[in-house]
């Protein structure tokens, strides 16, 4: 079973990044859960969600020990980097988290300048999709095609199919960025 923690400022789209991950897993017939921090945390401060997926029963949908942390801002990195599983992965938004970082030796750190990339491909709101794709690539459980199909299926069911081309472009960009 995989556990991923998506964290950032409210409004950065981390909850959607996590939802894309969970929906891709479900699309491929796996079990998945998505659990957010909620309430006052949704309006301003930090937002985070834990996604778990796999073929076995998910007993606890809550956070335990993430295999991967996506940190979209500095406070999220500071708060959660220590919780990542031994030998785990951390992906940071290097547009916001810059300079020297205190990184655990067992961790593989990936820097993705998601906002810069989003602007380069003319998808200014696509940073979170770029990150969702980067996470899917790094965990190596689903192919690029599975990821795109799962994501597009999700947005279509929400009635947001008009963004499909843009989302696909962002996803491909993120998948190739790591």
């Amino acid at each position: 079973m995989r556990e991923i923690l998506y964290a950032g400022f409210g409004g950065q789209g981390v909850l959607t990044s996590g939802l894309v991950m969970s929906q891709v897993a479900v699309f491929k017939g796996q079990k998945a859960t998505w659990m957010p921090s909620y309430g006052s945390a949704m309006r301003g401060g930090t937002a985070n969600c834990t996604v778990k997926y796999g073929n076995d029963t998910i007993y606890n949908p809550g956070q335990e020990e993430p295999d991967l942390l996506l940190a979209m801002n500095g406070p999220s990195y500071q708060a959660f980097a220590g919780m990542v599983k031994l030998g785990g992965i951390i992906v940071i938004n290097s547009d916001i988290i810059s300079g020297e970082l205190d990184v655990r030796e067992d961790i593989t750190l990936h820097r993705v300048a998601c906002s810069t990339l989003a602007n380069e491909i003319d998808q200014p709101r696509g940073a979170n999709i770029i990150m969702a794709a980067a996470v899917i690539k790094l965990l190596n459980d689903f192919s690029l095609e599975d990821g795109i199909h799962g994501m597009n299926d999700m947005f279509e069911k929400k009635g947001k199919q008009k963004f499909e081309a843009g989302n696909t472009k962002s996803f491909e960009c993120g998948y190739n960025a790591v």
């Binding site: 969970s22 079990k31 859960t33 998505w34 659990m35 957010p36 949908p61 809550g62």
Partner: peptide, 10 residues
């Protein structure tokens, strides 16, 4: 529970 109300799963 709050967590069950707020979480998602199929």
């Amino acid at each position: 529970e709050g967590a069950l109300g707020q979480m998602m799963e199929p």
